[in-house]
Amino acid sequence: MKKHLLSAADLSRDDAELVLATAEELRSLADRPIKKLPALRGRTVVNLFFEDSTRTRISFEAAAKRLSADVINFSAKGSSLSKGESLKDTALTLEAMGADAVVVRHWASGAPHLLAHAGWARSSVVNAGDGTHEHPTQALLDAFTMTRHLGSLDGRRVAIVGDVLHSRVARSNALLLTTLGAEVTLVAPPTLLPYGVEGWGVETSYDLDAVLPKADVLMMLRVQRERMNAAFFPSVREYSRRYGVDARRMATLQDHTIVMHPGPMIRGMEISADVADSERSVIVEQVTNGVAVRMAVLYLLLGGSQPAIGGDDA
């Protein structure tokens, strides 16, 4: 694996499969009374969050702690409008504190890339979601969840439905799932598909009903109500009618098809309560798997085949 995980495109098929296999081993830890391994003892993982995301931060925190790493949570306030301390100065501070890995969530697309390549710090950088760009560990946990239910993803059909335009989850999944051999279809109203999506090497559709019967996985994305104010769709009601999944639509799925959602869900908008709580729904399991996958990522980036002590590449 590379030193950083900035994009799902950084992962070769071998890399991705190694992460998934490692996560499978680490997942068994969750069932033990003592949920801790010494693999990253003495290593420091910083959770650097420029944007609030309690669930992602907790997931990374749990992952690092279960590997015995020291965890520092660094919540850096500031937005594109009100600039706080600069990313550079934050990076220099973390470098001075001896961070081995920086898990970064940022409102700006490309911020993790900058952190990794601007020469400010030597630590490994894990992208925990940047702007409308990518969220590669979410894609890994999604792929991991799919694999556990469906086995190999070769030739499996995954429908990703919703606000693809603003979704870093969709971007990372489109890349990773394609790498793993799945056939991805992005389903959205034309306004919520990115310009130039034809070049992504995935299928697109405006017609959810046509896609459902063929899908092995149905992944619903969150759609913010405010988007209708910017004319992406006329109303919540119309969006739900055309692109929301409810019991009627769920009935057209194949028996083995699973329903996923990266959360947080808006019940009644993109997904109805009876679908979210149904047997097919693996939404809660995604959260559990998130910890295992993030453990695997941290382990492979920081420890891997090298000993946890004395393996510094600096």
């Binding site: 697309s109 490309g110 702007g131 409308t132 760009h133 310009y195 130039g196 999506v197």
Partner: peptide, 13 residues
């Protein structure tokens, strides 16, 4: 520039 790349990079076109 709005093009395939802006969509991939998540930068507004």
């Amino acid at each position: 520039n709005e093009g395939e790349l802006s969509g991939r990079l998540g930068l507004r076109g």
